[in-house]
């Protein structure tokens, strides 16, 4: 067995008991799911391989701490910024705006 290639390469590693709790999917997770599917359909990414590559670029800490759809979101952001579909500045400004809006609404 080779050394793991990135934080995603989990097969055969140690792990704790399986948490069997069921979770509902939150609406924002459905939205990210749809966004990724539409990005593929519209040719913004060439294949889910690109999305997986973006997830593998996460630091081990990010990989562990992020939930499944958070990883998808970060990966798509990484890919679309590196492809020039959006700029890093645009994205950062919008994240600030979303945060400000959430704070104003009292949810953040």
């Amino acid at each position: 067995m080779s050394e793991p290639w990135g934080p995603h390469d989990l097969g055969g590693q140690e792990g704790g008991p399986i948490d069997l709790a069921e979770h509902d999917t939150a609406y924002w997770e459905w939205q990210i799911d749809a966004m990724v599917r539409l990005a593929l359909r519209k040719g913004l990414i060439s294949d889910f391989a690109e999305l997986r590559d973006g997830i593998e670029q996460l630091t081990p800490h990010d990989y562990d701490q992020c939930t499944y759809y958070e990883r998808w979101a970060k990966s798509l952001a990484y890919t679309l910024v590196s492809r020039g579909v959006i700029s890093r500045q645009q994205l950062e400004d919008r994240i600030d705006k979303v945060r400000a809006r959430q704070e104003a609404e009292g949810v953040a």
Binding site: P7, L10, Q13, E14, G15, G16, P17, D19, H23, D24, T25, A26, W28, E29, Q31, I32, M35, L38, A39, L44, P60, H61, D64, Q65, C66, T67, Y68, Y69, E70, R71, W72, A73, K74, L76, A77, L80, I86, Q90, L91, R94, I95, K97, V98, R99, Q102, V107, A108
Partner: peptide
């Protein structure tokens, strides 16, 4: 990162998490 923390992966967090905000921001831009 090879033991306890790996078992702590909630299926979803609050939409106010940093990762969720990245997603919501990206969605709006697209």
């Amino acid at each position: 990162d090879h033991d306890h923390s790996r078992t702590l992966q909630p299926d979803h967090a609050e939409p106010t998490s940093e990762g969720a905000r990245v997603g919501l921001a990206l969605r709006e831009l697209l």
